[in-house]
Nucleic acid binder design. Structure first.
Lengths: 130, 130
DNA sequence: TTCCTTGCAAATCGTTTGCATAATG
DNA sequence: CATTATGCAAACGATTTGCAAGGAA
């Protein structure tokens, strides 16, 4: 059960994450939260991110590029990793789970879920430079 | 261009990968190839896996669990990561790229590709124990 | 007082890299 | 000979963890 106690650090982390839509990494979160909470340690940031993600209050993204990113928006949506600038942007599209589930129905075993993400060039990077 | 020279080590690695359908990690590959090639180093294994993957001769899988796996089968297919035993099994299903592409068409930017994998319980693990 | 949390630093772990030497074309 | 590939070990980078001290219920 792990009765959870309140902590100023955890609040700052979650609060910060809610103001961002760019899926920051633990390190970025650390450097930002630090401004209002100078003594917080990177370990604490990681511990809380893991805890919040397990509790379903935030989500942890792994886009296969070696770093985990965190998202305060837990509503169903997809992501695109820009190959040019490395940023991750939201991609709102119709829920494709139905298609995937139907396709996977023939599998002899049990499918719990799936992960899908896209890569390409984000809007900002595909605009011509002035 | 990087003219590629022949090497016994690279051959063993690729050869080994062709005999497996279980998507081994670099370390597993290392320990196996070592049996016929006692002096090979882990660094060489990594260098060659990266090289072969870039050349499109094998593919590198990242299932978000911290380790990279390698697949000698480069034909289009999907994968499932078993949450019970940690193994990765092939999942043959109709190509869903069309669906994804259509869904992503509305995106204001350029989509190069996508990554999709499943997780759940593999056939072996979902069979009742005797 | 109990026990969850923190800060700090050290430890992990998978993967990459620098360098001198060996092998290939 | 010009270059690519290797073995070894050290370096890396992201994340986790042990521990003693601090804070919440």
């Amino acid at each position: 059960m792990a009765a959870r106690k309140h902590s100023r650090q955890r609040d700052s982390i979650k609060e910060f994450l809610m103001t961002r839509t760019d899926h920051p990494t633990a390190d970025v979160i650390y450097r930002n939260v630090r401004q209002h909470n100078p003594n917080i340690s990177l370990g604490t940031v990681y511990r809380n991110l893991t805890l919040l993600a397990q509790a379903g209050e935030i989500s942890r993204l792994n886009m296969g590029d070696g770093v985990d990113r965190f998202d305060g928006d837990t509503s169903p949506h997809y992501h695109l990793l820009c190959e040019r600038c490395g940023s991750v942007v939201d991609l709102k599209l119709e829920d494709i789970s139905a298609v995937l589930e139907k396709a996977a129905a023939q599998f002899d075993g049990h499918i719990t879920g799936h992960v899908t993400y896209f890569y390409g060039i984000c809007r900002r990077c595909s605009k011509p430079t002035i």
